[in-house]
Design a protein around this nucleic acid. Structure first.
Lengths: 212, 212, 212, 212
DNA sequence: CATGAATGAGAGTTCATTCAT
DNA sequence: GATGAATGAACTCTCATTCAT
């Protein structure tokens, strides 16, 4: 598949005046709003500018390409996820498997479901954006945090820890994603954390080495 | 999100003559080829027609809108997945949990990874196409098949079987999707089925009611 | 100076139907008309399409970029010049210096002044178009024809013939260009050929080797 | 050709203070630098302001339109050329034809080739700027100076002196321009003055009236 | 006076779709 | 039925110019 590598996705200009920082924020929020209200295919620079109440020219002053707009939104979301996982994982160093799983799952579910619509929309963004490299790096960062945590479990040790971590992470994401893509009932959302804990714990205990 | 319900996507004329059927197939295959070779953003009706060796006019004779083209491709893929799962599930009625899981996982992994590129490309198609309803219906159908199967397990019974099925399905999809989005090493792909079995079995055994 | 090399300037599609050949011609003529009526800075694809009575889309079917439009016009003009010089030079092989000069100058002046406005406009086009390579190649071709001719002069021989040819050609172009850029009076135009003959002959006779 | 006569191009405010004069000069130099480094199509007011280290607002204080900027650069160049020719011509009053030609050609070649890149770039500026009138006036001034000089030649007299002057000037410009448009070898540049002298002298001697 | 954020008309280009041949 | 020329709305992006601070 042709994937002409794109120019930098980062924003062009770091604004110096307070006025323009406000503008940047407005545009950013407008992007999310358009994304949610109209969907990715109808997200055009003109529409975002209109919604933000600025001219296209202003938009391009801060986001030099349409893709930079989307990338910014994606970035904020993923950065948030990564930070949350990092912190949760770090706080559980030395705990038991059960404690670890419960904490991580809770944090993960919370951040993904609290802004449900945004999360949903961003899946589409990520695929359309040739941001694979960036998305992968975030996932990698998450896995590293989880792996470091698992190594310190007080009640378990693993033979192939990187595979175990990969599955652990994947298994958490799977049902959440499926849920996001559908129309989850509140009921389902309430059940989810407990179920995910069960899934993860079931797997990890199975893979843990028996103490001789 | 605005979803001006689109004019019927599968409104394509069912051709009566053999020659016409051949044309439809040619166009269909051309669509997949263009999708894989050029990517969704470069998939234009003209390019598909060229690749198929027909004129745009002819293409529109059979697929009255571009979306119908994409929908057809998506449909065939999902239909295949659904059929595979249906059959695997049906063949395992009455078996043990372990046998069931092993069979389903194997079938699922096989169909998703044998045509890795296509699966990946279709993910983008699905998001761009507002085909949520259809995708959901396929997932629903899959879950129904799985649930029916689980009910007949010779060595287990479940309290909330629909939730269990939901998680079972979600848990299979998760790691596969994560793998597809990255650059899976052959090694990883080899490990995957066994790991998935472990995940699913770990969960299902945990959720199974203890026989008194 | 940055000169990002541009993609091919050639026309995209060789039309197959008579209808479209007519369209191509219409667009071509419209380009010249807009160029003359509005000037290069106001020559936009929309304006050309309007003048041609077709839609922009149609224009782009045949000239995939704006530059292709300009290049086509430039090309036709230069090709005409080159052909004229080639033929005139060839027809004078073996003649005397005076005959050669008279013929060449006449041909050159005629072709440059018969379509005065077009010639004038094309200078601007050539500089804006990064067509240096092409323009150079035409000039080279002209010089080659002139040099071949001079070698056969029945009444003269030259020591450094390539330099002499270069000056001969340059000396013809100079006053013509100056004339084109101004508002030449008809009187001036009438005097021009005789004067150019005088210039060229004066130079060439001066540079010719004295027969021992 | 439409030539909406443009608002005065040199409407720039004559600054009264030394500091302002310095700013004007800085902007002026920045314009030339951008022109040479980036080319005319990439010469934007913002880029010029950046290069000059001032804001766009300041730039507009002194050059109320972009065209004024370009016009100023063009003007300085042409003024320089005109002055050089004026002085050279004046200094040769009463000399022989050969002395005149040698001096004028030398001065002309020197000024045109010493800043080759600038000359080239300005050609594009002149065409984009609708400055024909001004360019013509400079040429007229040059011709006047040359004609005045030729009238005093100690060893020649001409029947139609204004035509002779026109050709003399045109003949000097032609080969130089051709050279500038190509990639002149240093070798060529060294030969040029001598050759031009030959051309001009050949012509002028031919056109000089025989002393009875 | 200087700044630089904001403007918005206008440019080049693409592509789903139609319809005369 | 098949063809492919023609359409034109819509998109991304640029840049000369203005004006509140």
């Amino acid at each position: 598949m042709r994937t002409d590598s794109l120019p930098t996705l980062d924003a062009r200009k770091r604004p110096r005046q307070a006025r323009s920082q406000a503008t940047v924020d407005t545009i950013f929020e407008a992007t999310i709003q358009v994304l949610l209200a109209e969907g990715l295919p109808r997200l055009t620079t003109i529409r975002v500018a209109e919604r933000a109440g600025v001219s296209v020219g202003t938009l391009y002053q801060y986001y030099p390409q349409k893709q930079a707009l989307l990338f910014a939104v994606l970035q904020r979301h993923l950065e948030q996820v990564a930070r949350t996982v990092d912190e949760a994982a770090l706080s559980m160093h030395g705990a038991t498997l059960a404690q670890m799983v419960r904490t991580i799952v809770t944090a993960f579910v919370k951040i993904k479901t609290q802004n449900l619509a945004e999360s949903r929309a961003l899946y589409a963004v990520a695929t359309e954006l040739d941001s694979r490299e960036y998305v992968q790096s975030i996932k990698q960062r998450n896995r590293a945090a989880l792996e470091a945590m698992l190594r310190t479990a007080s009640d378990a040790r693993f033979a192939d820890i990187s595979t175990v971590t990969f599955m652990f992470a994947g298994v958490m994401i799977g049902p959440i994603q499926v849920l996001l893509e559908g129309e989850p009932t509140p009921e389902m959302l309430k059940l989810l954390p407990e179920q995910l804990v069960s899934v993860c714990l079931g797997y990890l205990e199975r893979e843990a080495l028996r103490p001789a």
